[in-house]
């Protein structure tokens, strides 16, 4: 399953994601535990929570992030 279509508010673990330096140095990488905080209208960005912080991430990127439930 990809992150963009995952349920809101449920934690999940990133299994596979494309190489992205900025995401990596922000601490989002394979094995990270994240959850979706909000979705926007008209295909806008997702807000995801990791640790105690939040990140807005384009839907196109989120679609390429494969996750598994925990």
């Amino acid at each position: 399953m990809d992150l963009a279509n995952y349920r809101k508010g449920k934690p999940c673990i990133i299994e596979h994601m494309p190489k992205n330096n900025l995401l990596n140095s922000m601490g989002i990488r394979e094995g990270s535990r994240v959850s979706i905080k909000s979705r926007q209208l008209f295909g806008g960005p997702l807000v995801i929570q990791y640790g105690s912080r939040c990140l807005a991430i384009d839907k196109k990127i989120a679609e390429k992030i494969k996750i598994k439930e925990v």
Binding site: L23, V47, R53, L55, A56, D58
Partner: peptide
């Protein structure tokens, strides 16, 4: 560019 932005507290 796709959006990638930190959401501050």
């Amino acid at each position: 560019e796709p959006l990638l932005m930190e959401v501050p507290n």
